[in-house]
C-alpha cells in the first residue's frame, strides 16, 4: 500500500486530536485527544519505518506507547484530585489562574 495513505490517516487523526484538545472542555476528553495525537505520531513512525525498512520507527513507537500511558496516568491523577476538591471539571472553568 502506498505510504501516502498511512500518512494521510495519521495526519487526519493528529488534526482531530489537536482540534479536540483545543475545543473540548472536559479534561478527560482532552486527555483522550492527546492520546489521539500521540497515536497519530506512532502511526506515522511505523509507516516511515516500513518505508525506510529500518527498525528505528518501531522502537520509537514503543516508547511513545509508554509515554502516552504515563501521561494519561498523571492526567487522570490530577483530574481525580480536582474532583476530590469538589471542583467543576471543565477546563474553561479553571479560572483560578488568570490565563
Amino acid at each position: 500500500m502506498d505510504i501516502g495513505w498511512y500518512l494521510a490517516v495519521s495526519a487526519i487523526v493528529f488534526a482531530i486530536g489537536a482540534a479536540g484538545v483545543i475545543t473540548r472542555r472536559n479534561p478527560l476528553l482532552v486527555l483522550l485527544c492527546l492520546e489521539l495525537m500521540l497515536g497519530a505520531s506512532s502511526l506515522a513512525l511505523l509507516a516511515f519505518a516500513k518505508m525506510h525498512g529500518n527498525l528505528d520507527g518501531h522502537v520509537f513507537a514503543l516508547v511513545v506507547i509508554v509515554v502516552a500511558a504515563a501521561e494519561v496516568a498523571v492526567g487522570l491523577g490530577i483530574v481525580v484530585a480536582l474532583y476530590r476538591n469538589k471542583v467543576a471539571v471543565d477546563v474553561d472553568e479553571l479560572r483560578e489562574l488568570h490565563g
Binding site: 514503543l62 509508554v66 504515563a70 487522570l76 481525580v80
Partner: peptide, 26 residues
C-alpha cells in the same frame, strides 16, 4: 453519578503495569 477513587487508582496502576508487560513481551 460519581464513583470511588479506588477505581481510578486501579485504572492508573493497570496502565502502568500493563505497559511494563508490553515492554517485557518483545
Amino acid at each position: 453519578f460519581r464513583f470511588g477513587i479506588s477505581f481510578y487508582l486501579i485504572a492508573m496502576l493497570f496502565l502502568l503495569f500493563d505497559i511494563e508487560v508490553v515492554f517485557l513481551y518483545p
